[in-house]
Deep mutational scan, measured.
Amino acid sequence: EEERTFTNEEEARKAKKEAEKRGLRVTVTKDGTTWRVRIG
């Protein structure tokens, strides 16, 4: 499991799409101005 943080919503969405392409489970949460993308 890996967690990545982004300040840019577009980049967070891109990371989510890429992980889904690899067949991984992805959770995206917004924490104030930060987007957290949890993969795995």
Rank of each mutant, 00 (worst) to 15 (best):
T27N: 05
K17A: 14
R13M: 15
R38F: 11
F6G: 02
G32H: 02
L24N: 03
V37K: 00
R25W: 09
E2M: 12
V26I: 02
E11M: 06
V37D: 05
T34H: 14
A12Q: 01
T7R: 07
T5V: 14
E2G: 08
T7K: 07
K17M: 13
R25Y: 10
E10R: 11
E10F: 10
R22F: 05
E2H: 12
T29I: 13
I39P: 02
A15T: 04
E10W: 14
R4T: 08
E9I: 10
T7C: 13
T33R: 07
K16I: 15
V37C: 04
K16V: 15
E11G: 05
R38W: 09
V37Q: 00
L24F: 10
E9Y: 15
E20A: 04
L24H: 07
E2V: 12
A19K: 02
T34F: 14
D31G: 03
T7S: 09
W35Q: 11
G32R: 02
K14E: 13
K21S: 13
R13F: 14
E1T: 12
K30D: 04
G23T: 01
V26Y: 01
E2D: 09
K17S: 12
K21W: 06
T34V: 14
T33G: 14
T27H: 08
V28F: 05
V37G: 00
T33W: 07
G32W: 00
G32F: 00
D31I: 11
V37Y: 00
R38M: 11
T29E: 09
T7I: 07
R38S: 11
T33A: 12
T7G: 08
T29A: 04
W35H: 13
E2W: 15
A15D: 02
K21E: 13
G40A: 12
R25E: 08
G40Q: 14
T33L: 12
R22E: 05
K16F: 13
W35I: 15
A12S: 02
R25S: 10
K14T: 10
E18Q: 07
V28S: 00
E10Q: 10
T7W: 08
V37L: 09
L24G: 02
E10D: 12
A15S: 04
E3L: 09
K14R: 11
R25N: 08
G23E: 01
T34Q: 12
W35K: 12
A15P: 00
K21T: 09
E1D: 11
T27L: 07
R36M: 08
E20M: 07
E20L: 07
T27M: 06
K17L: 14
R36P: 11
A19L: 14
F6T: 02
L24V: 05
T7Q: 09
R22Q: 09
K14P: 01
E1C: 15
